[in-house]
């Protein structure tokens, strides 16, 4: 791996981290519950993409499985949270 790709990988990981920090801002700021769920949903997608980038960085297939698991668990989590919001018992 030459410097070009290694640096590009580091840069993209860094950009992903900034994006995650911004999404976290939305998780804490809200204001409504659905905003927080939306931001959490975004966080897991970013984490999954970061796993794929890490897979390239370490030239390993194993990270792909991790990314797949994050995608599945993130989907189930967001789905459950959204369904909970839809039940109407947690009106602020």
């Amino acid at each position: 791996m030459t410097g070009l790709l290694a640096n590009a990988i580091l840069a993209s990981l860094f950009i992903f981290i900034i994006a995650m920090a911004l999404a976290l801002v939305r998780v804490f700021r809200g204001p409504s519950a659905q905003d927080r769920v939306l931001a959490l949903d975004y966080l897991y997608i970013l984490a999954m993409l970061m796993m794929l980038v890490l897979g390239i960085r370490y030239a390993s297939d194993t990270y792909f499985e991790g990314a797949m698991l994050i995608a599945l668990f993130g989907f189930v989590g967001s789905f459950a949270l959204a369904k909970f919001l839809l039940r109407g018992e947690v009106i602020e």
Partner: peptide, 17 residues
């Protein structure tokens, strides 16, 4: 491709905020 993808993700986060 990696930089493009991550920049789009960053724009998405900016929009979210």
């Amino acid at each position: 491709l990696l930089l493009t993808g991550s920049l789009f993700a960053l724009v998405g986060a900016i929009g979210l905020v």
